[in-house]
Design a protein around this nucleic acid. Structure first.
Lengths: 136, 136
DNA sequence: TGCCTTCATGAGAATGATTATCATCTAAAT
DNA sequence: ATTTAGATGATAATCATTCTCATGAAGGCA
């Protein structure tokens, strides 16, 4: 079963979720998406949000990561390039960073250990300039 | 927070968990530890397992990773100090790796963006040698 | 040794995210 | 318009993890 592409229907809900992710430039949890869509008038059931996100992940349309708190967060696949985040643990400010060094390193390490098909998650957490200053 | 060492008492339960981890050479979830300890006669409450694991993680005695299923898995630190993991997404085999390159890169990037007090999470996921072969 | 203070434990309730259920709805094909 | 298989959503069910709180036990001290 499911060897063939299951039929995908374009519904109001899927469009809403897709649109939402297109405008979000960061990772969002299913709960956040659900809440914000509801607040925006385009009410979508929580179960639908989860189902859709899962489907989109399997289809490779979105990336999924696990937060430190154990929640799943999703974002639209960066079709152009893969990058990482530098997040302020105080105010949440986020900067996207790219790292050829890390990419290269990951590939090398993987090869050394005999691993194939390797992906990597790299996140930096710290205090941004403003929060560093505020702390004195 | 945690500037001072809170008092730690050596109890039968903590010893049991510690021993268990000392003999396990792989990541184990709190649930598994709880179940196996119970099966082995050294019954330890589930809440205690969680609390102890959390304490040990904060103390840097064990490593914690999130499985793809969203569970927390723990293992006693083999390498003392800071390191990363290379995890097989198929069988769960894990290798600890250290990366001076990455440390250096993180420090540099942080400085470039004006961030201070930076920590980083780096996890590699792939298919280990055995699983790569099995897949053909 | 016996007492005391404080931390630790554990059974069970509470929480919170994710998944399953299932009656109802609807996109898309005919 | 009719049909039909996929989609939805309110709600119940799961499951890992955390909280509650009465009870137990380390370790210090007299």
């Amino acid at each position: 079963m499911m060897t063939e592409h299951p039929q995908r229907r374009t519904t109001r809900q899927r469009i809403a979720i897709s649109e939402f992710l297109a405008h979000a430039d960061d990772f969002r949890t299913a709960q956040q998406i659900h809440e914000q869509l509801r607040a925006g008038g385009d009410g979508v059931g929580l179960a639908t949000v989860y189902r859709t996100l899962q489907t989109m992940t399997e289809a490779g349309d979105v990336d999924m990561v696990r937060t430190q708190e154990g929640e799943s967060a999703y974002r639209r696949c960066a079709t152009h390039g893969h990058h990482h985040h530098l997040v302020c643990r105080c105010c949440g400010r986020t900067e996207e960073i790219t790292a050829k060094v890390v990419e290269a390193w990951a590939t090398t390490i993987a090869a050394q250990h005999g691993f194939t098909d390797v992906t990597h998650d790299v996140e930096l957490h710290g205090l941004c300039e403003r929060c560093s200053a505020a702390r004195v």
